[in-house]
Nucleic acid binder design. Sequence first.
DNA 1: ATCCAGCATCGAGATCTGTCAATATTGATC
DNA 2: GATCAATATTGACAGATCTCGATGCTGGAT
Lengths: 123, 123
Amino acid sequence: MSKNALTAAPRKLLDVLDLGECCTPLRRELLEADQAVTLAEAFKALADPVRLQLLNLIATADGGEACACDLVDPVGKSQPTVSHHLKVLREAGLVTGEKRGTWIWYSVVPSRLEDLRRVLART
Amino acid sequence: MSKNALTAAPRKLLDVLDLGECCTPLRRELLEADQAVTLAEAFKALADPVRLQLLNLIATADGGEACACDLVDPVGKSQPTVSHHLKVLREAGLVTGEKRGTWIWYSVVPSRLEDLRRVLART
DNA sequence: ATCCAGCATCGAGATCTGTCAATATTGATC
DNA sequence: GATCAATATTGACAGATCTCGATGCTGGAT
């Protein structure tokens, strides 16, 4: 079942909350329970210091991508732990990993971050 | 010790990550471990379906504020549970509660949401 | 084919979190 | 005073989460 483990499993996330154009004084919709669950899963991926550091490391890396091998030392956790957190980020659709030879290059998915930003814009 | 429990305890949060003017192609800073912890605490407050619903209910309420008494039924949880989640939101600085007579009126803190949005903008 | 490096998975322990029933506190009203 | 309604707090339990050591898997190099 673990085929294609790297391209993540971007469960449909925030589409339910597509709020139309950017910066439009949008109509505030009531948040249904199931939508809230989906949204909360996305924010859960951001709710850990190690994952935030990983995201930051990847986002600020040269060329917009970072080798997984360069992510272990900076966060000060074990390799299995880092691997676990990268999986969480992948499954949340926040990053993607591309395997090249022996190692894996990670890059962020800007559109996913943008989705979450839009949600926070509704005040 | 529980004096002034309503005005929340807005632990300094995202000031560490003040990125300067909006929409500036800002310099990407490395995220230190302690900063990541502070940030993660903020996102943790958003990482729960009930809290997202509460935030949404408050944000979309008439006049921008909602009575706590009107927040229990919509989320389908017990009163202590809702009270707990409102406390988490308060301590994260995402909402404030003002006591008027017997009940408490909650409103969101837009600047705090804006802070988190800025963090997600760094890609 | 063998060996090694990069990464994932498994299993387990410790801690954190969401939830509720019961109870306490606070404030308005009688 | 006593009483009631609105919130908060406590205590306890179940389930989720973070973490690591041990192990498995994969691909390149010898």
